[in-house]
Design a protein around this nucleic acid. Sequence first.
DNA 1: GTCTATAATTAGATAGAC
DNA 2: GTCTATCTAATTATAGAC
Lengths: 198, 198
Amino acid sequence: MTTRAQQYEATRRRIVDAAVGAFSELGFYGASTRAIAARAGANQGLITYHFRSKDELWKAAAEQIFSQLASALRPALDETGGAREQAREAIRRYVRFAAAHPELFRFMVEEGKGGDDRMQWLVDTHMKPLYLGFQQLQGEYLPDTDPALMPHVHYALAGAASLIFAVAPECIRLTGMDPTKRKAIDAHAEFVSRLFVP
Amino acid sequence: MTTRAQQYEATRRRIVDAAVGAFSELGFYGASTRAIAARAGANQGLITYHFRSKDELWKAAAEQIFSQLASALRPALDETGGAREQAREAIRRYVRFAAAHPELFRFMVEEGKGGDDRMQWLVDTHMKPLYLGFQQLQGEYLPDTDPALMPHVHYALAGAASLIFAVAPECIRLTGMDPTKRKAIDAHAEFVSRLFVP
DNA sequence: GTCTATAATTAGATAGAC
DNA sequence: GTCTATCTAATTATAGAC
């Protein structure tokens, strides 16, 4: 037996999932609420009912992606082995997440380029905590790094780890190699981890 | 004295410049032809006159960016010094271009994520030749690299070199560091070139 | 060549039936 | 809770005056 509360949650979740996909593929303006509703197998009016506006729906979508990233990275702290191998494993984990969730990087670029409200909300609410955790990890694993280089390392790593998966269709057409295949993901994880922790 | 042909070219150029900025900041759907025209100090009707459609205007904008990249990278072949230092200089050059033209990376991500017509045109017309050149450079400078790793190196380098500049507003708010400053650009160029050519 | 006016379509948001 | 119908505004593209 399904209660109304269960139905509410199920529908809401379907819409958020559809929104994540649509925003990630088409961008904020390209993804219409009608298309998102259709993708979720629901009606457009339901979006207004569950979320107040398109902006609020976008926030819910961003929230889902970043909470998934946070829980995917958490186990990296519990790794065993030497500091360098721990750092490598954390990077491999990040690469695998980027492969499984290319939406993260697309959201980051889509919003990070403009200085609007959505970007500020995204940084303050979800990216700041993650960046602090990254700084802490780097201080632990690679204590000999110049602190002024921190932003450079962070963005170089994020870009190196994620771009190939974010533009997978382009990569296939350009190189003939499909980066979504298991072997390609492993190869990329190994390459990037060795690149940043030789 | 300004001829009509000169006026034609001047107006067309102003519109293309405005389009590059608008598409780069807002994406294809977010940038309206009206906003582009206003940005160019022209009328919306002129866009239809100079370009047939919004798609054609987008192509003209992409064309401008990639032709600039091609001419910026060309001198990399004439560098002197050992193979490793040549490779480093080519990377530094690429980083500086990414800093001066963050539009390139934004176009790449914006279009590369979907499999639509614009992506296919972009890859076939402008990215394929550049990628072949990149493969050639890599074969010359770093002949010991596994060919199967080529796509991984290419996308890792593109991401590491460009992301920080493409999301400059986000970087400032997240880290407090402004990547558009001269010093930050040099630091990033040096960091990335040493990263890929230790 | 450049502009104004407008047609046709689509967007996000609302109101109300069920 | 979900859906249909509709409102208002903004979109691309067109037609025609100057």
